[in-house]
Design a protein around this nucleic acid. Structure first.
Length: 868
RNA sequence: GCGGGCGUGGUGGAACGGUAGACACAAGCGACUUAAAAUCGCUCGGGCUUGGCCCAUGCGGGUUCGACUCCCGCCGCCCGCACCA
């Protein structure tokens, strides 16, 4: 064997990467072809790429290269989601600067991505921490401010009283600051917010149009936006402090008002705050509630706690007994009015609460057909609440309005009308008790962050002029470089010269806003910036009109709600402020969410029983022992790769050992793309073997004596089927299935006894079909077999439909639904013919035992089922 | 806690409501070789009274001529929960 024959990736891959570069193949150009924009969620520059990145970008690259072969002008860009906390944490830990850390990480990761041979237009690359990017983001912010889409409002944050700094939710561990260990307090700050809830209705209704999004993502967004229809009304509180004579409540179950047994208000409710100031017991209860942290998760998981204020709430008209008013820790100030009434009989949380504080449990409805007994407290309802689905017909014992039997939804509708016009018999007047309202769970998006490494908010605070927007000609407002992280808190806040500026309006001394923007802002419009990454304005409308929308967006399911919702909001805001053309309000035509990459982890127990993880290379996997010590290890089959579990595989090692094509092929084979993918050393090894087998097969075929016989029926049929099925696999994001078909096709070529020309033709098609996945090997094979130009420039092959159908089909015969035999019939055999054949089958004759079949089901071309 | 998803051989997985296990990995056997590697070929869900029969798609029910697929209830794991990205 000469060196030329070997499948030497270290020679082949750089060679083709250089050739592609020199031909400038991946530059996205506007021309007469139809366009296709494929985008993978851009990475955070954490330091090194991991296999998850390889899988994500390989999927995008398969689509990009495939579409390019299909004649599209493809835009496939890459950038960096470069602002965020890790850079500041690194600066605090090792004294460097977030900027240096970030850009050096970007250099490293770009250097790691290039050997993968991705068809990316690198000329469009940017990082969100580039002043050229965030300056345009500041311009967007100013336009949104003018359009009324940004405003200031108070918001609650986690405050670390020792470090004197605001903490992110992930920095609060068990209610304590991660560095200081101090008990975290809630603090209210005035913050900037995007008016995303003003678009709630459109964001919800438009989900129906996103047909090429996963159903689960649309459902998650729908639930997140959370449209609810309910009633809003007031309880009167006679002995309340001044200004709190009424408690406004919102409920989605007004039909249960006659089962109310308490009124609950949030610890952050204005009434609670007033009482807190007067009563130390209330204050201590509220402060206890506030230690829970700010996440909804913490609040909902916590034990239900209440504090009886001693106040009594009265529903005007005297329809319900006066109720006690509790401050309760599970009521969120952000949702509805921050106050509710509790109906323990028909709500789990209210039930828990009532049991704990000995409140009445009054039944309103009952399963249909249950005994009608007017006992107020029945044993069953004391045990558990009755919470039927809203569309189930139930028996109302205490209907607010409407018939005795109705569904929950009908009862709610009746109850809403009742609240709007109650008729009181005693004085024979109609009065309005409340109103039917539609509310959304979606809250406005607080964007202020008390951190350095983010996009500065371009406003100035002036004593005389108030909040003054920066002038656009002053943008970008750059982050100062001369900052230190030796003390906690935001360095901008204590910067000697950056903070103090002249008011853009009156020129008097003023202070710059020192908060920066949430990094979700950066990632909410980068897809638009890629269409004109060097424009002097946020976007170029011509370029945006040509390239938008993103035809295929690919990323992790963890972004199903926030990132995608914020991007949908931003697209709308950009259309409204003239930065995107009409029709781009939904910026992502198709969305695909890929699974994680997992790897086995190897663990032993330390001397204190704590888990000790071992690197795969230190473990003798087949013997399940630590190689050096012989200690037995437990194998955890497949968990998410993480450094702490020592189960991380470095893509660079894989490329060095097997080449990029092996890494690319392996990450999309075997597992369906939407599911988690398990990296195994055996799997990678097997792929490398297969690819070198393809290379060897191509070499052999290229060498074979040429003959004139170009046609081979069997091979042509196999080729047509491969073209058809691989194309279908790629189009439907079934890369694992496409790969399986490529294995089959390779086997078919390898086993074929067809002439050299016929095999050359089949092999060229194989190269084309493999090109999106293993582009370097495909180019090499294509060249060996005299393919013209680059394989990725060759038009995608088409299957001859005539070769895809067989003349006969094999029909399985089931008896009572289980397969017992099969028959071979003509493709278009009629029912009578098939029936006759079936009844002749020995297995059928035996099963019938001389009798007649009860039923004979013939599904033409598919199956026969004999029911005996 | 709430919302969403997933669960099929020893392993990853395939299967318009229609032959469960395609295609691979691992394992075993064989060929080639002085030998090994590489390569090629064969076997490979479990059980049994093995020319055949029975049981099998997390568990328990249901719909259907027929269910991995649809419906209901559990169990386990994963994602998100608004300041991680």
């Amino acid at each position: 064997m000469t060196p030329m024959d070997r499948y030497d990736t270290s020679q082949i891959e750089p060679k083709w990467q250089k050739a592609w570069d020199e031909a400038d193949l991946f530059r996205a150009v506007r021309d007469e072809r139809p366009k296709y924009y494929v985008l993978e969620m851009f990475p955070y520059p954490s330091g090194r790429i991991h296999i998850g990145h390889v899988r994500n970008y390989t999927m995008g690259d398969v689509i990009a290269r495939y579409r390019s072969s299909c004649g599209f002008s493809v835009l496939h860009p890459m950038g960096w989601d470069a602002f965020g906390m890790p850079a500041e944490n690194a600066a605090m830990a090792s004294g460097g600067h977030p900027k240096d850390w970030t850009y050096s990480n970007i250099d490293t990761m770009r250097g790691q991505m290039k050997p993968l041979g991705l068809s990316i237009d690198w000329s469009r690359e940017f990082a969100t921490c580039d002043p050229e990017y965030y300056g345009q983001q500041q311009a967007l912010f100013l336009d949104m401010l003018e359009a009324g889409l940004v405003y200031r409002k108070p918001a609650i944050v986690n405050w670390d009283p020792v470090d004197m700094t605001v903490l992110a939710n992930e920095q609060v561990i068990d209610g304590k600051g991660w560095r200081s260990g101090a008990e975290v307090e809630r603090r209210e700050l005035v913050q900037w917010a995007f008016a995303i809830s003003s678009m709630a209705e459109d964001l919800l209704d438009s989900l129906d149009r996103l047909e090429d999004w996963p159903e689960k993502v649309r459902l998650m967004q729908e639930n997140w936006i959370g449209r609810s229809r309910g009633a809003q009304f007031s309880f009167e509180v006679e002995t309340a402090p001044d200004g709190h004579g009424a408690i406004e409540v919102y409920t989605t179950r007004p039909d249960t008002i006659f089962g109310a047994s308490f009124v609950g208000i949030s610890p952050d409710h204005p009434l609670a705050k007033t009482l807190e100031a007067e009563d130390p017991d209330v204050a201590s209860f509220c402060s206890r509630c506030r230690k829970l942290g700010t996440t909804a998760e913490a609040v909902e998981k916590a034990e239900k706690l209440g504090f009886d204020t001693g106040l009594r709430a009265r529903l005007p008209g005297g329809f319900v007994e006066d109720l006690p008013v509790y401050i309760a820790n599970f009521i969120l100030m952000d949702y509805g009015t921050g106050a509710i009434f509790g109906c323990p009989a028909h709500d789990q949380r209210d039930h828990d609460f009532a049991v704990k504080y000995g409140l009445r449990i009054v039944e309103v409805m009952r399963p249909k057909g249950a005994d009608r007994d007017d006992g107020i407290e029945l044993p069953a309802i004391l045990e558990a609440p009755f919470v039927p689905p809203k569309d189930e017909l139930v028996e109302y014992i205490r209907p607010v309005a409407g018939p005795d039997q109705m569904t929950g939804q009908q009862a709610i509708d009746h109850a809403v009308s009742w609240f709007e016009t109650v008729h009181r018999k005693s004085d024979n007047v109609d009065r309005q008790l409340g109103v039917g309202v539609t509310k959304y769970r979606l809250r406005d998006w607080g964007l202020s962050r008390q951190r350095y490494w983010g996009c500065p908010i371009p406003v100035v605070h002036c004593d005389t002029c108030g909040v003054v927007p920066e002038k656009k000609e002053n943008l970008p407002i750059r982050l100062p470089d001369d900052v230190t992280f030796d003390v906690p808190g935001n360095p901008l806040d204590r910067h000697p010269t950056w903070r103090d500026v002249a008011c853009p309006n009156c020129g008097a001394p003023a202070k710059r806003e020192t908060d920066t923007m949430d990094t979700f802002v950066d990632s909410s419009w980068y897809f638009a910036r890629f269409t004109a990454p060097r424009a002097e304005t946020p976007t170029d409308l011509d370029d945006a009109a040509y390239w938008m929308n993103v035809d295929q967006y690919i990323g992790g399911i963890e972004h199903a709600i926030l990132h995608l919702l914020y991007s949908r909001f931003f697209a709308r805001a950009m259309v409204r402020t003239g930065h995107l053309p009409q029709g781009t309000e939904e910026p992502f035509d198709a969305l695909f969410t890929q699974g994680m990459v997992t790897h086995p982890a190897y663990v032993t127990k330390g001397d204190k029983g704590q888990p000790v993880y071992h690197l795969p290379e230190d473990v003798d996997v087949s013997a399940r022992k630590v190689a050096a010590t012989g200690e037995a290890v437990d194998v955890i089959p497949a968990i998410k790769m993480s450094k702490s579990k020592k189960n991380v595989v470095d893509p660079m090692d894989i490329i060095a050992r097997y080449g990029a094509d092996t890494a690319r092929w392996f990450v999309i084979s075997d597992s369906p793309p939407e599911r988690d993918f398990e990296w195994t050393p055996e799997g990678a090894e097997a792929v490398a073997k297969h690819l070198s087998r393809v290379h060897r097969l191509a070499t052999d075929i290229a060498r074979a004596d040429r003959d004139a016989n170009e046609h081979d029926a069997a091979l042509e049929k196999a080729t047509a089927r491969a073209v058809h099925e691989v194309t279908e696999g790629i189009e439907g994001f079934g890369f694992n299935k496409a790969v399986a078909k490529l294995y089959e096709f390779t086997n078919a070529i390898s086993k074929s006894d067809a002439g050299a020309e016929a095999r050359r033709a089949a092999m060229r098609t194989l190269a084309q079909l493999m090109a999106p996945m293993t582009p370097h090997l495909a180019e090499e094979v294509w060249q060996m077999l005299d393919g013209e130009g680059f394989v990725m420039r060759a038009p995608w092959p088409k299957a001859d439909p005539a070769l895809l159908v067989d003349d006969t089909v094999t029909l399985p015969i089931q008896i009572n639904g289980k397969k017992k035999a099969e028959i071979e019939v003509a493709k278009d055999a009629d029912k009578a013919t098939v029936e006759a054949l079936v009844l002749d089958q020995p297995a059928v004759v035996k099963a019938l035992d001389g009798g007649q079949p009860k039923k004979l089901i013939v599904v033409p071309g598919r199956i026969v089922n004999v029911v005996v």
